[in-house]
Amino acid sequence: MRTDIAADEIALRHAPATRLVAHRDFHIRALDAQRDAPTLHRWFIEERAAFWNMRDKSVREVAVFYQDIEDSGHAQAWLGMQHGAPAFLFESYDPVHEEVGEHYDVCAGDIGMHLFVGPATTRTPGYTRRVFESLMMFLFERLGARRIVVEPDSRNTRIHALNRAMGFTYAKDVTFREKTASLAFCTRADFYAAIAQDN
């Protein structure tokens, strides 16, 4: 397994910025707000998307929201593809420019992340974990993160378990304007140590 990870790391470091980045079952590309909004809207209206806080948005509002992210200059949305079909969405951002940056001392190399996994076409054991590993490798190896920061809703127990399995260390709960967030961090070393334990 470590050999496979090393090969993926090399491929990610040298992948041109305009190309898709591959890891295992997935390819990751920049989100196209207008083209991808209908797909995201279908995902977001599902009951399981309650913590994403987008269930009441129209397709147009979803497109505007993600275009604003693209235009921000400090954040980016990405779409993970599996066999040519959208599989998951994640957002990367500079914590200095976001609410989370008000609650801790941001360090150089910190990248914030939000993840939304779309409905799987075929349910397979460990699917969400493979998604998470793929985007974490992308953040560390392609975007150059030194540490990844997350701030999920404190009530979202499923994501907390997955975060911890990926090597995140929880620091504290903080009060955001729209939620109580659990602030957690993961270094490159902690991530690779965590996934090595299971392989």
Rank of each mutant, 00 (worst) to 15 (best):
T169G: 12
R129T: 09
N156M: 05
E133A: 07
A75V: 03
A165Y: 03
S182D: 07
H103Q: 10
F88K: 01
R55T: 10
R155T: 12
R146G: 15
R155A: 13
A161M: 10
W78F: 13
R55H: 08
R164E: 15
P16Q: 08
A49R: 04
H74F: 15
K57L: 11
E61N: 07
R147G: 02
S58K: 09
A15Q: 13
D25L: 09
G73P: 02
P95H: 08
P152N: 05
D56Y: 09
E178C: 07
E178F: 10
F116C: 07
G126W: 12
E133D: 14
L139R: 05
M81P: 02
I10M: 11
N199F: 11
E141P: 08
E61S: 12
T121M: 09
A33W: 06
M81G: 05
L143G: 06
F168L: 08
V149A: 08
L162P: 02
F51S: 07
H74E: 09
F116Y: 15
L89V: 03
E46H: 14
A171E: 14
I45Q: 05
D4C: 06
Y170F: 13
F176N: 06
V100H: 01
A11M: 10
V64A: 08
V149I: 15
D36F: 05
D68Q: 10
R60A: 01
I111V: 14
A171T: 06
P16D: 13
E70K: 13
A161H: 12
R42S: 14
M54N: 10
Y192K: 02
P152E: 07
A161D: 11
H160D: 08
L162F: 06
T175E: 14
D190M: 01
S134V: 05
R13V: 09
G112M: 02
R164P: 00
D153P: 02
W78L: 06
C107F: 06
D71H: 08
D32E: 14
F88W: 09
R142P: 05
V117S: 04
